[in-house]
Design a protein around this nucleic acid. Sequence first.
DNA 1: TCGTTTTTCTAGAACGATTTAGAAGAACGA
DNA 2: TCGTTCTTCTAAATCGTTCTAGAAAAACGA
Lengths: 346, 346
Amino acid sequence: MAPGVTIKTVAQAVGVSPSTVSNAYNKPDQLSATMRERILAKAAELGYAGPDASARALRSGKAGAVGVLFTDKLAYAFSDPYAVGFLAGLAEVAEEFVTSLLLMPLDSSDIEGGTDAVRQAAIDGAAIFCVAPGHPGLDVLRKRRIPTVSTDRGAHPDTSWVAIDEMEAAAKLGKHLARLGHRDLVVLVDNTEAAGSRPVELSLDQVGYADCELRIRGLQKEMPDARIRLVSGGHNAFSSGLAGAEWVLDSQDRPTAIVGLSDVQALGAMEAMKTRGLVPGRDLTVVGFDDIPAAEQAGLTTIRQPIKDRGRMVGRVLLDPGFAEHQVLLPTELIVRSSSGPAPRS
Amino acid sequence: MAPGVTIKTVAQAVGVSPSTVSNAYNKPDQLSATMRERILAKAAELGYAGPDASARALRSGKAGAVGVLFTDKLAYAFSDPYAVGFLAGLAEVAEEFVTSLLLMPLDSSDIEGGTDAVRQAAIDGAAIFCVAPGHPGLDVLRKRRIPTVSTDRGAHPDTSWVAIDEMEAAAKLGKHLARLGHRDLVVLVDNTEAAGSRPVELSLDQVGYADCELRIRGLQKEMPDARIRLVSGGHNAFSSGLAGAEWVLDSQDRPTAIVGLSDVQALGAMEAMKTRGLVPGRDLTVVGFDDIPAAEQAGLTTIRQPIKDRGRMVGRVLLDPGFAEHQVLLPTELIVRSSSGPAPRS
DNA sequence: TCGTTTTTCTAGAACGATTTAGAAGAACGA
DNA sequence: TCGTTCTTCTAAATCGTTCTAGAAAAACGA
């Protein structure tokens, strides 16, 4: 009950050395059972809550937590079911290894990139979820020599990642669209810089994220003679997809198909069609990417990727010493639903 | 680049004391600008990533993170949109205060309650999300003297919480059902002990969570002469609601209305009705609690509570020194949709 | 010019644990 | 009985910071 009950306090009260008290908590086989009992009883009596987390982390070099770094704002992460699925998988494994998950915010008000939280995070490793390659947060982690596992295949051959073949997956989508006769696409792209303002049309090199770029390339590969325009309504969210699609639909130059680079954006596009009396799959084709739960309800044609498994695998690579692989490629699958149909003959 | 670059290393390289290097990072006004420049440059050159997180946490007593404690498994937390909404709100405020969110798993394999993660978590405070009052994890936090803010109104008058008037909210639901003529209810209750096995019928004192109990009391208050049975299909999830409702619907003794104590459970019940060709609101009334996004799509009558605000408020109470209140009551609202209708005359 | 204040930097003691190496005594085999 | 091996416990160093108090030098006011 007294303030500042430490291992030392307990040791003195019992009449043993601090080392012994420490062992009572961490190495039960290093001392007699009776002594351990006595120490634990006294500790409980004094209201000692066990070894201090920070001190233990400092001395032992283990924090008992892995960090999670997201694109953009932390709050956005929870608005995307895809990110939530990833977290659920990761949490499952973290749980197994009695390891906490530290969600690190990136302070956007800071000019330096707002990596304060990343700097001060007490973590043993970090999961990198869809973060642009050049992000300053990654630099901090590298300097801190914290092992990371990314959801993107990195440029360096020795980085760890759990990914899908983005280009091949997008190619499946492209083949599907090509077969339906589409030759005029708009791709809804996640782009943070466009946020806040009106939707904008981008060129391929303005796309910040490596995976987005690969997906676009995959489409191009299977649709070499199609017109493919890139439009962004802001960061990856339903509202951005809605805004981007509204802009496209209200323009003079409608495409025959809209590709959301994520399901949430595609669902936003479907909403925009709905309010304009357009039927997805008949008047205009909409396809997505991810296959989040809501995609099935909405009848959205999309690429399914095992997102929860992706979280699980990242957890394994990060935490499981018995897991040798450090580069994992997961399968994807084209799911055809009602939102895609033949292109109308012009 | 060399292994073990510490403040001391940098200090020696520059030719100043460790304190000065520390100040260069933490108190820029305590040293000349030129010296600061010089130190930072040298640090970058040596590949020093800034003060070690654990050491800083130990010495300064600030971890720069707040913990989040959930009911049950951590992975479940992400399957409930209600919990996700709460997290999004909390994350928003955490972001503002450059504070990380530490999600602590409760190791269920441990007999002692599996509070290892809670014990070893380096945190300055903790948000308690729907955790049963007697949970061992709470005890650990109390012993560690970590400030907590709960989503339940605690028994002690000096605890901090951000809550709704559960009983009053449930009473609104009860009044609505009573007005529609219902006198025979089944309430789908979250109950961890029932998990894994078949759905079970419970008595009021077997309900583990304080808020659940209050909601049931609220119903009873407005429906004093109704028969109210409590059924649990497991922990709070769609599948439990489904299982519980299936059990109820396939029994000889169907009620006229099913109350899910959360929307996910109510949605599970609607699914069970669907597969049996029953129409919610006509053949049987289903109502929920929370008003998650999916509730609107499904036409579920429910109690809306501002879940994101709840997360935000918990964040404020925990982190904002300028926020004086430490007990906040948020409003609720009855949202009537198509899933509730008049009770059929027997 | 002299005392006073401000700026800039430092020495050394914490912070609260874990770890290493080893001492003291008990148990053991021959 | 003696040397050896366990078992059980301890002393002291260490982890990498931040903090307190204060010293030295610079700037200031009169």
